[in-house]
Structures are given as C-alpha cells and as structure tokens.
C-alpha cells in the first residue's frame, strides 16, 4: 500500500480576517499525478505556498514525504521541485548559471549540475538562449526555465502552480509528456494546479477540489467521475457541481453590454 507524498491535517491559513485555507485535510498518494482544482481565490496557491515553505500556516500540520513543512523545511526542500505562481527567477543570471545555481544549492556536484543544466536546456529548447540573461526571456521561456530548475535535482515530489499558463501548444505537449514519464517511470508525485480542466482530466490520476479554503471533493479521477446509476460525468460537470453551478445569466444586469446600443 503506497504511502502519502503530501499530507495535511486541519491546515489553516488566515490573512487578517480572511481565511484562505480552512482546516484542509489532504492526502496525496505517492506516485500519483494529483490535480488540485478550485475557482479563483479558493486557496490553491496558498496551499502550495504553505507546502513549499513560502508561507507559514496559521494552524494545523502539513508534511511532505513524512517531513514536517515547518520544522523540517530543509529536508522537504531537498526532495521537492517547485514551479511557483509568479516564478522565482533571478533576472541577472543566464539560463545556464541559474540551473547551476539551483543544482549546486540542491547538493549536486558541480560537474553533475553543469551536465544536467545543459541537458535540461536542450530538452526544453532553451539551448540557444542558455547564455542570455533571464531578463531577456519571454514568459514561456521563463516558465520552461523554472520547470528545469524544479527538475534538475531529480525531486520526488513536484509542485506545479499553473505550469501551462502562457506556454504555447507545442511546449505544453512536450512538458505534458515529460511529466507523464516522470510519474509512470520514476514514480515522481506531481501536485498540480490548473484552471484548464481538460489538461487535468488528461493527466491526473487523482483530483482534489477546493472551494472557499475547504476541500469539497477528493479521490481518484475515476471515483469522482462516477455518477449515479453507472453514468460518467466530465470533470467540468463534477467541478461545477462541487464548486457551484453558473449563476444564471452571466450578462444579467449588463444590458448595455449584451444588447446593441450606443456606447457612452
């Protein structure tokens, strides 16, 4: 029976009077491709930020691979790779330097870090820009570099916050294949947030849905999609069901926008 790569118990995080994560209890099986879904402001990024050490929890516990994220944060960071929302790149380093920087901080020998940096840059189609400073990279290139940084030390858990946002279709396809290979062959656990349900449906083995800081659904994709009477729902139907259906006519009260007429 596999253990859990990520576990939280009554995890709570408040910002002043606002509760972003509310007594969240989560279990992500090792080797799973876990899709963490929720509407905007549901608490997805806050949860990832707590699990990766960017935020401190207000209360509750969280562990990654059995290590407490607060008291054993360095142990956690040695075993995870992260592509945070907003990225975490130093503009003045070149792509190669950035990967060597991350690789050596992660404990790789200099020669290994250098070799892997070159291979990752080639694999991500960044070879031609390897010697250019990150400040000159496009959004997609930055995303690929951030993903490379998260992979260079061969992590056991990957936290990816909207990894496909701003990346072209070809790169998305390549990264998707790479992630699938990591999960299938190397048994890496991927914890991914995305608003693109189609991507989650295609990639993930497990799904958790969060709304208002609380977990409203969790399980394997097949379990969650199973409807009454042996029917199968799409992930979108499930998501809308758990999070809340559309609030009627979206353009209600916006008559000036919906109908033809003079503008101000």
């Amino acid at each position: 029976m596999p253990g859990y790569a990520v576990e939280t118990q009554d995890l709570t995080r408040t910002f002043g009077a606002q509760t972003a994560v509310d007594h969240l209890t989560l279990r992500v099986p090792e080797g799973s491709f876990y899709g963490f879904l929720g509407p905007n402001g549901a608490g997805k990024s806050t949860t990832i930020n707590i699990l990766t050490g960017l935020l401190a929890p207000t209360s509750g516990r969280a562990s990654v691979l059995g290590y407490d994220v607060v008291s054993q944060d360095l142990e956690v960071k040695r075993r995870i790779g992260v592509v945070p929302d907003g990225l975490a790149l130093f503009d003045r380093l070149t792509g190669t330097e950035h990967l060597r920087f991350v690789g050596e901080i992660q404990g790789l020998a200099p020669a290994v870090a250098r070799q892997r940096a070159g291979e990752l840059l080639e694999a991500m189609d960044l070879g031609a820009s390897a010697a250019k400073p990150v400040s000159g990279y496009s959004h997609g290139m930055r995303k690929k570099l951030a993903l490379s940084c998260s992979l260079i030390h061969d992590p056991r858990v990957l936290f990816l916050d909207e990894p496909f946002e701003g990346i072209d279709a070809i790169a998305t396809s390549e990264i998707r294949e790479l992630l699938q290979r990591l999960v299938e062959r190397r048994k890496v656990t991927v914890f991914l947030t995305s608003h693109v349900l189609e991507v989650v449906e295609r990639l993930c083995t497990h799904v958790g849905i969060i709304a208002g800081g609380r977990l409203v659904a969790e399980g394997t994709l097949d379990e969650l999609r199973a409807g009454p009477g042996g029917t199968t729902r799409t992930l979108e139907e499930l998501f809308l069901d758990k999070v809340g259906a559309p609030r009627g006519d979206a353009s209600a009260g916006l008559g000036w926008l919906a109908e033809g007429g003079t503008s101000a």
Binding site: G53, E75, K77, V82, I105
Partner: peptide, 11 residues
C-alpha cells in the same frame, strides 16, 4: 526581484 522566492524554496 522575483528570485527572492528561491531563497525560501531551495534548501
């Protein structure tokens, strides 16, 4: 800049 996150994400 944004790289400051790295100091908290890396071991």
């Amino acid at each position: 800049g944004p790289g400051v996150r790295s100091f908290f994400l890396l071991p």
